[in-house]
Computed example of a mutant assay.
Amino acid sequence: MMANLFSSFDPSTNMNLSLNWLSTILFFLFIPSMFWLIPSRMNMLWIKIIMTLHNEFKILLGNTNIKGSTLMFISLFSIILFNNFLGLFPYIFTSTSHLTLTLSLALPLWLSFMIYGWINNTIHMFAHLVPQGTPPILMPFMVCIETISNMIRPGTLAIRLSANMIAGHLLMTLLGNTGSMLSIYLINILIIVQLALLTLELAVSIIQSYVFAVLATLYSSEVN
């Protein structure tokens, strides 16, 4: 019996071993088959998505001298997208709904960008703290505001992803638990609403993985 509604998101609730985190690497079962089978429509669609992301990230980075610079962000998009999709299947743990995973993705990225920027482009990083055209009297306040906004970036990245994943799953769980108390007519309406929510969650899964990867790309382009 669950102690509360949020305990359904706790990997230690259902069993003594935290085997639920194995869902994070389930996408390794699907990706390799694409490289050994005859290219299908799904494979061509995935290649098209990757090439589109590559061209977009290359524009955002603005530095084409480094070969393969977009590979890290495409891989980041892929792992978040697969985990978001797998979390929509019954009895598969949604690892991206936990700050443990999302912070593990956002914090090392942000920290590496900051270390690289402050070591190699110190003047450029100082210039980012004061937006162009700021009056001299407001410069100390702008430095404080820009510093705080820079410090909370990994937190906002992580919380945005996990909160969006939790919100949709929580709403579907709340509506699903009311099914046993409804009449046959209301159950039909409930099923339609649940299907609509599932479609919305599919869209949210794509959008949130894209937003995470794009924001990480933008943060990296600021340190060059």
Rank of each mutant, 00 (worst) to 15 (best):
M44S: 11
Y185I: 15
L37Y: 03
A213P: 11
H98Y: 12
L175S: 01
S183F: 10
A163C: 07
N224Y: 04
L5S: 12
G117H: 08
I59H: 14
N120S: 09
T199E: 03
I192G: 13
I115F: 01
F93R: 12
F9W: 11
L45A: 06
S209Y: 00
P108R: 01
T199F: 13
G62Q: 09
G87D: 04
L161A: 08
Q132L: 03
Q208H: 03
L105P: 13
S12N: 12
H54D: 15
S23R: 04
N188E: 10
F85S: 10
G176T: 01
M2Q: 03
I145Y: 11
L215V: 12
L37V: 10
F27V: 15
L19Q: 00
G117N: 04
L103P: 02
L202Y: 07
F57G: 12
P140D: 11
L174T: 07
N65M: 11
L107D: 04
V130Q: 07
M165D: 13
A106N: 07
S209P: 09
L53M: 00
T147E: 13
A196M: 13
L81Y: 13
F126Y: 13
S183M: 10
N63A: 06
I137Q: 07
F28V: 09
S69D: 11
S23C: 09
V214T: 03
M151I: 06
M1W: 05
W21E: 01
G179H: 14
W118H: 08
L174M: 03
H124F: 00
E146T: 00
A127F: 08
F27W: 04
T217I: 11
I145S: 02
N63R: 15
L109W: 15
S205M: 06
L105D: 08
N188T: 02
K58R: 10
M1N: 00
T134K: 09
N120K: 15
S112E: 08
P131N: 01
I187Y: 05
L88R: 15
N224V: 07
L171P: 04
Q208F: 14
S221L: 06
S33C: 14
R160W: 05
L138F: 05
I207A: 05
H124W: 11
F73G: 15
F85K: 09
V143I: 02
R153N: 14
P11W: 15
T102H: 00
N224Q: 13
R153P: 01
K58A: 10
M34D: 15
T100V: 14
I38N: 06
S220C: 08
M72K: 05
G179M: 08
A158G: 06
I207P: 09
L88G: 02
L129W: 00
L103H: 01
S40C: 03
S97H: 09
S69H: 05
P140K: 08
A216I: 10
N84C: 09
S104M: 10
K58P: 00
S40V: 06
L101N: 04
G62E: 02
F85T: 15
L111G: 10
H128S: 12
L109C: 06
F93N: 03
T122G: 04
E222P: 02
L29R: 11
I59V: 15
F212E: 11
G68T: 12
T24A: 08
V214Y: 08
L197A: 02
I66K: 04
L26S: 00
L17M: 02
S205W: 15
H128A: 02
A216N: 06
